[in-house]
């Protein structure tokens, strides 16, 4: 009961934040009826998806302060589980997605146990390595389609069990539901014992240990929560794109993007990942479609993107939300 109340209780946020969340929710609910084009709708779906990824990363990376750069492998696990179970055994999404999440959790414990013996740069690079190894295996593994990837069979009629719809609206509402599930979970998480303990580990790991916190075990738990989040998103990617390959769901760039978005928005805060995604995803997409399509300008969109990463890292590593918080504390 207590838990449920914590998840839906936003009362410790400021009035402005609560009103903002309310307006945002209303906007999302009516968005499909605003007559946006299919491109804008796709961008919106991407935004919600990456917010979900970012929220997951935020548990271990933001609250726990661990530089985790290997989330793509769990996107891949989620996506491949859904795709393969559908292609091989015709198992509906609603079964395969939870299975994918369970596999991701199991795998994350397996990897996390040795991984969290490491700290600092060693840890960061090791997370990249684990993800690259899995990607390499999938690129070469003939049984799962190797580098060519997997195409999901397209059904003739919309099928709720397999999450196949003609219109993007359904996908939009579905990812929106997942987004809010994630949001409520995070609202609970930040107030939970684990949330407090992780923040202490980020502040001062030695002091945390002296307060009876098993730092390594806490990190492993947070890591698997993060993995479960992105595996859900991965499952969604499979049914939404109807095609996956190791490059689209397991790439290093994807891992980086997830972490970057949370950091740009403000790591370790409730709204950070959402703000980061709201900022970067449209930028990424619009730059891509505007510049990427023009002849002779290939790569310019990414250069602008990269330049922004550098500027943010150098001048405001606490992210957009960090700036807002700073002003608020000064004003108060």
């Amino acid at each position: 009961m207590e838990t449920l109340r914590d998840a839906f209780d936003f009362s410790d946020f400021s009035k402005a934040e609560r009103i903002g969340l309310g307006l945002f929710t209303i906007f999302l609910l009516v968005f499909p009826w605003l007559g946006a084009g299919s491109f804008v709708k796709a961008v919106m779906i991407q935004f919600l998806l990456f917010s979900l990824f970012g929220m997951g990363w935020n548990t271990i990376g933001g609250y726990g302060g661990q530089v985790e750069l290997g989330k793509a492998q769990y996107v891949g696990i989620g996506a491949y589980t859904v795709a393969l179970m559908m292609v091989w055994w015709k198992i509906p999404f609603w079964v395969s997605m939870p299975v994918g999440v369970l596999i991701a959790i199991g795998y994350s414990f397996m990897i996390g146990y040795p991984l969290f013996r490491l700290k600092g740069h060693y840890f960061a690079i090791a997370t990249i390595c684990t993800s690259l190894v899995l990607q390499d295996i999938f690129i070469n593994w003939k049984l799962v389609g190797a580098a060519k990837g997997i195409e999901l069979p397209i059904h003739d009629h919309p099928d709720f069990l397999f999450m196949q719809f003609k219109s993007d609206v359904y996908y939009f509402y579905f990812i929106m539901a997942l987004f809010y599930a994630g949001l409520f979970y995070m609202n609970w998480f930040r107030k939970s014992k684990l949330g407090y303990q992780l923040r202490m580990i980020k502040e001062d790991e030695d002091a945390a240990e002296s307060l009876g916190i098993d730092a390594r075990w806490c990190k492993i738990k947070a890591y698997s929560i993060a993995s479960a989040f992105v595996a859900v998103g991965g499952g969604f990617m499979a049914v939404y794109n109807l095609y996956i390959d190791p490059y689209s769901v397991m790439d290093l760039d994807l891992s980086i993007k997830i972490a970057l978005m949370a950091m740009l928005g403000g790591a370790g805060s409730m709204w950070g990942p959402i703000i980061g995604a709201a900022f970067l995803i449209p930028l990424d997409r619009f730059l891509g479609s505007w510049l990427g399509g023009q002849k002779g300008l290939i790569g310019v969109d990414f250069m602008i993107y990269a330049a922004m990463i550098m500027v943010v890292s150098a001048y405001q590593p606490r992210g957009i939300w960090g700036i807002i918080e700073q002003f608020r504390r000064k004003g108060a």
């Binding site: 207590e2 914590d6 107030k191 939970s192 014992k193 407090y196 303990q197 923040r199 202490m200 980020k202 502040e203 001062d204 002091a207 945390a208 307060l211 009876g212 916190i213 370790g268």
Partner: peptide, 23 residues
């Protein structure tokens, strides 16, 4: 360690969480 991420109350709550799961 002088940090800016948690308030005094939150700091002490972490200590108290050692003996309870209830916030």
């Amino acid at each position: 360690k002088v940090t800016a991420g948690m308030t005094v109350l939150e700091n002490v709550m972490v200590g108290a969480f050692c003996r309870t799961d209830q916030r």
